[in-house]
């Protein structure tokens, strides 16, 4: 339903001025090729600055690519960016346009601007607010809500006036588990009843693993992998992740521990290692016995997550994906 070919966008270099350092030319999306199927929840995963939002802005007609094509449901979005608004609903990261409206008016106005008649907009507004559990907050301005509630209200606005494609840029940021569940069950209902397709931008690994049908991993503007979450994890199935947390500092006087030092990713008291299963077993045996054990606070052994996939595929950022 959505085909992206050779999509490239380069931000020009910016000359430094007083107070702002010069930035070199940045290729935000680099020859991106994607196929999103009808009715699936397709994810774009990557750390901050990987080009997710730039890619989404080009898919929604908000930004013109330098090169490449975007076709959604048979419409050429590069040539006719204004058609995007009649095919998809977009939930961006910013809510400033709606902040001073009440939840109810934000949803209703958005529906009206999506071309609904007044009565229909009000009916859909009521149904969506009810569905998301926002009815009690309907009269409150978005500004006065907590971050998660405000996000949910913006999501409600995105749902009023049905569209076959929902483009959601980190929809569940700052939401509590109840609100997250409301979001995903609303998405699932639309998928089951109307075959709605969802393009989800996220840097949350857990969410990516649980809700996505397929995921494209982005790194520095390129798609470095695209498969189901399980398919991607198989690529690094051999490895196991070992997390060691020391009480104060690592006991570098123990030779086996000192030998590991070159291979760890160190973050405060925490050491993270990616190892073959036998190696992992040997490391656990070492740290749980003898002199090292006295210095050990906690340890965990885990099978690979999408974060490990990202790192194994050569993702540049060593951090930046959110767990949990």
């Amino acid at each position: 339903m959505c085909a992206v070919r050779g999509l490239t966008k380069t931000y020009p270099a910016v000359r430094g001025r007083r107070g702002t350092p010069a930035t070199p030319e940045v290729r935000a999306t680099d020859d991106v090729r994607l196929d999103i199927r009808g009715g699936e929840i397709f994810g774009l995963l990557g750390p901050n600055g990987a080009g997710k939002t730039t890619l989404v802005r080009q898919l929604t007609g908000l930004m013109r690519p330098d090169r490449g094509s975007v076709e959604i449901l048979g419409h050429d979005i590069v040539r006719h960016p204004e058609r995007a608004s009649r095919i998809l609903a977009y939930l961006g990261q910013e809510s400033t346009a709606l902040d001073e409206l009440t939840v109810s008016l934000a949803a209703e106005t958005t529906g009206r601007l999506r071309g609904l008649e007044a009565a229909r907009a009000r009916a859909e507004r009521d149904a969506v607010l009810e569905e998301l559990g926002l009815t009690a907050l309907a009269g409150r301005p978005l500004k006065k809500l907590s971050g998660g509630q405000r996000r949910l209200a913006c999501f409600a606005a995105a749902l009023v006036g049905e569209r076959p494609l929902l483009v959601l840029d980190e929809p569940t940021t700052a939401m509590d588990p109840v609100a997250r569940r409301a979001v995903w069950s609303a998405v699932d209902r639309r998928r089951a009843e109307r075959g709605t397709t969802v393009l989800l931008v996220t840097h949350n690994v857990i969410e990516a693993e649980t809700v996505l049908d397929r995921v494209a991993v982005l790194d520095r503007g390129r798609v470095i992998a695209c498969d189901t979450p399980a398919g991607l994890k198989e690529q690094v199935a051999g490895d196991v992740r070992v997390d060691l947390v020391w009480r104060e500092a690592a006991p570098l006087n123990v030779p086996e521990v000192a030998a590991l030092r070159d291979r760890v990713v160190e973050s405060g008291r925490r050491w993270t290692l990616r190892l073959a299963p036998e190696e992992a077993r040997a490391v656990v045996a070492t740290v749980t016995g003898g002199a090292a054990f006295a210095a050990l606070d906690d340890f965990t052994l885990t099978t690979p997550s999408l974060e490990d996939v990202y790192l194994a595929l050569g993702g540049a950022a060593r951090q930046g994906l959110v767990k949990g």
């Binding site: 802005r57 929604t60 007609g61 908000l62 204004e82 995007a84 608004s85 009649r86 998809l88 609903a89 977009y90 961006g92 990261q93 910013e94 809510s95 400033t96 346009a97 709606l98 958005t110 601007l113 999506r114 071309g115």
Partner: peptide, 14 residues
């Protein structure tokens, strides 16, 4: 509105 990206809201509505 322009600086904060709030215009995107209107720009993605028909």
């Amino acid at each position: 509105l322009r600086a904060s990206g709030g215009l995107d809201h209107y720009a993605t509505l028909p």
